[in-house]
Design a protein around this nucleic acid. Structure first.
Length: 271
DNA sequence: ATGGCTTACAAAGTAAGA
């Protein structure tokens, strides 16, 4: 028996309802974390997911932009929106589980700020906000470990591609927001503070190119293959031994009217 | 030549994504 956790920046959940239900049917994850749902809670198309067995839905919605939601086959024992981000944006929701193979696990669904174009916090308020958010994540991760919590999962669109093999060209992206050294350093500090394991890279070797996002602007995204790995699933120290499999569902980027992100999937063995 | 596109919105052009 395995547990499957998936994350997907859907770029409007209402526009891509059919793609979400397709993923749920084809991959049958236990839990799916969505980012950029781009709607308020009241407009979230939850009934379509409940019909497929995902009856437990936690939403942090926002009108027009951002917003995250977590869909689950298993009941939640807790739902919390974090105090992240000074702008009051909907970028985090946490759910706890009390039963089944997920018992004792808290799953955090994050949408880290994109950061705008100019990678200079003095000139670009969005980039400053992104770096501040990483600082918050680092402090929060350290507090989690200090409190004795070792069974959490962090999933979502972290909007940073940390490894050289996480981008199509390390050299050409060094000054492009999402792969600048200051962002990668910030993300590495988050990882170290929380003793997080980059679960996907435990399965797919760090030497291998791996992406989860491809621009809409490419004439042929698959042929150009100029991608970045922006979407991640990290596991806490007590879960690292349960990592069994991981994958990017690359084909979803080629579905009709796709999101520019592909889903990322992690399989854990039962405890 | 990573922005050439895509999205939301008290709708024609803005803002945002990354």
């Amino acid at each position: 028996m395995t547990l499957t956790i998936a994350t997907w920046n859907i770029n409007s959940v209402r526009l891509r309802l059919d793609q979400v239900t397709r993923l749920l049917r084809e991959q049958a994850p236990d839990v799916l974390c969505l980012q950029e749902i781009k709607c308020m809670e009241a407009h979230f198309p939850g009934a379509a997911f409940a019909d497929l067995g995902y009856r437990h839905i936690a939403i942090a919605g926002q009108k027009g932009y951002h917003g995250v939601a977590t869909l689950s086959r298993h009941p939640f024992s807790s739902v919390e929106r974090g105090p992240f981000c000074r702008n009051g944006d909907a970028r985090h929701i946490a759910v706890g589980f009390a039963s089944g193979g997920l018992a004792g696990i808290t799953l955090h669904n994050f949408y880290v700020p994109a950061g705008g174009d100019e990678p200079d916090p003095e000139q670009n308020e969005k980039f400053a906000h992104k770096l501040d958010f990483l600082g918050e994540l680092r402090d929060w991760s350290a507090a989690l470990i200090a409190s004795g919590n070792r069974s959490s999962i962090m999933a979502g669109d972290l909007n940073i591609a940390p490894l050289e093999t996480d981008v199509w060209s390390h050299k050409q992206l060094l000054r492009v927001v999402s792969h600048t050294p200051i962002e990668v350093d910030g993300l590495n500090r988050v990882q170290a503070a929380g003793h997080w394991t980059d679960a996907v890279r435990r399965i797919i070797a760090p030497e291998e190119k791996l992406y989860s996002w491809w621009s809409y602007r490419a004439a042929d995204w698959a042929a150009a293959d100029r991608g970045r790995r922006l979407d991640h699933i990290w596991t806490g120290p007590d879960l690292a031994g349960r990592i069994k499999d991981a994958a990017v569902v690359r084909e979803a980027r080629g579905w009709e009217r796709p999101s520019d992100h592909a889903p990322v999937i992690l399989r854990l063995s039962a405890p």
